[in-house]
Design a protein around this nucleic acid. Structure first.
Lengths: 330, 330
DNA sequence: TAAAAAAATCCAAACGTTTGCACAATTCTC
DNA sequence: GAGAATTGTGCAAACGTTTGGATTTTTTTA
C-alpha cells in the first residue's frame, strides 16, 4: 500500500507537505498541490484512516447501538441514520444488544475504544437507567432515540406517542364509533404510558367517558390481542385503538371468528406501521412512527451538535380497518 | 484516558511489559501480569484499539456492504453475521449502496482504508461484474452472499434456488394440482434463472409438461403478480409457484376477485418467507431462505478462512395457501 | 561457585499520519 | 536595496500500541 511517504519521496518533498496538500491546507502552493494529487492518483494512494484517526484522536465513525438489527423499526432507523451520515463522510459501526444490559455496556465500551465521533443509542429493555452510559461514554456525544432516559445528557429523538394516540382515537370517534377500547402496553414503558394518555385525552376531549374496564393492559402480542379483543366485543365495544401492531393482528383474528365483515361492524387502528399492516386483509389503519426519519433526525442531531429533544410526529394512515365505507372482505 | 504508559509508570516498568502482560504473553511473570491487570482495572484502562490496529496493520472490524439495510432479507443477514462476529470479537461496519455501483465502489474503498479484516458483500443490482472489487480489495478477504459473482475469489454463500423451487413445485404436484404455472422473475438474475430451472425439473420429474405459456416472466411486484395470476386462471392453471413474495400477494388479490375460497380452488407457494406471508389471510406457503443463517454462514466462512461456495437450503413452509384441507376464509 | 541456560524485562523502532514551530524562499515596503 | 512581511516547506515530535532483539535477572547445571 502506498503511503504519503512514498508520494513525498517520488516528488522529492516531505510527507508533511504531502499531508497538507491532500488535506487542502492553504499553506501549500497550488503547483505542488496539483503535483501531489497527480502522483497520489498515479500510485493509487488511499489514506490510512487508522493512522489518521490515531493522530487526530478521533474518527469518522459513528456507533449505533440497537436491541436488534433485524427488527423492522430498528433497521429502518439505521437505514435513515446511515444515509445521512454517509453523505457527511461518516461510517457506522453497528452493535446489537439483543436486549441485554451487559451487551449494551460492552458495546458502549467497544465504541469508546474505537474513539467514535458519536453514539446513537436505543436502550436494551432491561436497562433501568442510564448510569452505565455516562460512566463509559464520558465526553463522546450521545444521541438517544426511541427508548431514552431523560436524565442522560444530549439529544433525544422520540415518537409523538401521546399526540399519535390522540389522533388515532379521535379518528375513531369522528368515524362514529361509540365505545372505543384500547389494547394498551406495559405501563413500565414510557412510550406505552404516553399512548394511553393520548387515548384518554381524545375520549375526554370528545365528552366520552374513560372506562378502565375496556383498557386491556399488557397486550402487545398476537395471542393476548386476540383474547383482549374477544373481551372487548363482549363488553360492547365497537372499536379499538391498539398500542402495538401485533396485538391488532390478534384482534383481527377475533373479528374473523365473530364473522365481522367490515369496519361498519368493528373498527381498529394500530400503532406502528409495520409492513404487514398494509398487506393483510383487512388492511390495518396505523400510526406511522417514521423510523427512517427518526434515524435521519438522530444523525442530523449529531452533525448539528443539537442537544434538545425532538419529537417525531406520527402519521395516521387510514386503511380498511377503520374505513366505514369499505368492506373488508369482498 | 489512561494509556499503557500510565500503567507502566505507576508500576515502575515499561510499556512493552504492560502490553505483553495485557496480551497474555507467556514471557511475562505471573506476578507482574497480575499487578498490571490490577493497576489497569484501578485506573480504568481501556485499550486504544485505533493505535493497536495501526501497529498491527489490521483491525477487528468486518465491513458489510448491502444494497439496503432496511430490507427484511438484508437486515436479517446482517443480524446473523453480527451475532457470530461479535462473539469472535469483531465489530461490523455497515455500508449501504442503495443499489448504486458508484456507492459500492466508494464503500469498498472506505472499508479498505479502515483496513477491515474482511468484507461481506452483496452486490448492487447494477454491478455487472466483480472487476471493481478485485482492484480495490486486493488481499482483503472477501465473502459474497446472495448476489455473487462466481469469478471473484473467496467464499460465497447462496440460497438453494433450484432445489427450493423444485421442492415447492413438487409439493404442489403431490398435493394434487394438475396445471401449475409460475410467476418467474428477471432472467438477468442468476437466482431467478435457477428457480425457474427447479420448477421445470420438478414438472419433468413428475411427467408433467413444461409449458412456457404459463411461465409469467418479470413478475416480481404485486401489480404484475395480480395481472399474471388472472392470466394463469384463464389459462386453466390450478396452482402457481411464485419466485417472489410480493408477486404472490398480487396473485392472492386475483384469487379474491375470482371468489376462490381456499387451497382446493387454487394453490400457491411463494419464495421468500417475508414476515407478512405468515400473517396475511390466507397465510402463504413459502420457501424460507434463512437470511439470518446466511449471515451466520458468511461470518463463519470468514472466521474459518473458507473459500468455497456454500448453499443454504430453502425450507418449505406449508401454510393455508397450498393446504387443501384448510379453507382460507372462515 | 562459576558458567550456562532460562526467564523476565527493557530498549527502541515502527505503524502512517498530523501539526506546531522553525526555517527558507519569495514578495513587498519605504 | 535593506529589512519586514508573506508564503511555502521542512523538521521532528506525537498519537498509543506492538514487537524483534538486546539486556538484565534469575535459575539451573556441572
Amino acid at each position: 500500500m502506498t503511503t504519503i511517504t512514498d508520494i513525498a519521496k517520488a516528488l522529492g518533498i516531505t510527507p508533511s507537505t504531502v499531508s497538507r496538500a491532500l488535506a487542502g491546507n492553504p499553506r501549500v502552493k497550488e503547483e505542488t498541490r496539483l503535483a501531489v494529487k497527480k502522483k497520489a492518483e498515479e500510485l493509487g494512494y488511499e489514506q490510512n484512516v487508522v493512522a489518521s484517526n490515531l493522530r487526530k484522536g478521533q474518527s469518522r465513525i459513528v456507533g449505533i447501538v440497537v436491541p436488534r438489527i433485524h427488527r423492522e423499526f430498528f433497521s429502518n432507523v439505521i437505514g435513515g441514520a446511515e444515509s445521512v451520515l454517509n453523505k457527511a463522510g461518516y461510517n457506522v459501526l453497528i452493535c446489537q444488544t439483543l436486549e441485554s444490559l451487559d451487551a449494551e455496556i460492552k458495546a458502549l465500551k467497544t465504541l469508546k475504544n474505537y474513539r467514535v465521533a458519536a453514539v446513537l443509542l436505543s436502550h436494551a429493555i432491561n436497562a433501568k437507567n442510564g448510569n452505565h452510559v455516562k460512566e463509559i461514554l464520558g465526553s463522546t456525544p450521545l444521541i438517544q432515540f426511541d427508548r431514552v432516559f431523560p436524565d442522560l445528557p444530549g439529544a433525544k429523538i422520540v415518537g409523538a406517542n401521546c399526540e399519535g394516540a390522540y389522533k388515532a382515537t379521535m379518528h375513531l370517534i369522528q368515524s362514529g364509533y361509540k365505545r372505543i377500547g384500547t389494547l394498551a402496553g406495559y405501563m413500565t414503558s414510557q412510550a406505552y404510558v404516553e399512548r394511553l394518555a393520548g387515548y384518554r385525552m381524545a375520549l375526554e376531549a370528545s365528552g366520552m367517558p374513560f372506562d378502565n374496564s375496556i383498557v386491556y393492559y399488557n397486550t402487545i402480542v398476537r395471542e393476548t390481542g386476540y383474547e383482549a379483543a374477544k373481551k372487548a366485543i363482549e363488553a360492547g365495544c365497537d372499536a379499538l385503538y391498539s398500542c402495538g401492531a401485533f396485538s391488532a393482528l390478534g384482534a383481527v383474528d377475533a373479528f374473523r371468528e365473530k364473522g365481522f365483515k367490515g369496519a361498519d361492524d368493528f373498527g381498529i387502528v394500530a400503532t406502528s406501521n409495520e409492513g404487514f399492516t398494509g398487506l393483510m386483509s383487512p388492511s390495518l389503519s396505523t400510526l406511522n412512527q417514521h423510523p427512517f426519519e427518526m434515524g435521519e433526525a438522530a444523525a442530523r442531531a449529531f452533525l448539528e451538535g443539537r442537544t434538545d429533544t425532538q419529537v417525531i410526529p406520527m402519521e395516521l394512515i387510514i386503511r380498511q380497518s377503520s374505513n366505514k365505507n369499505n368492506k373488508w372482505l369482498k
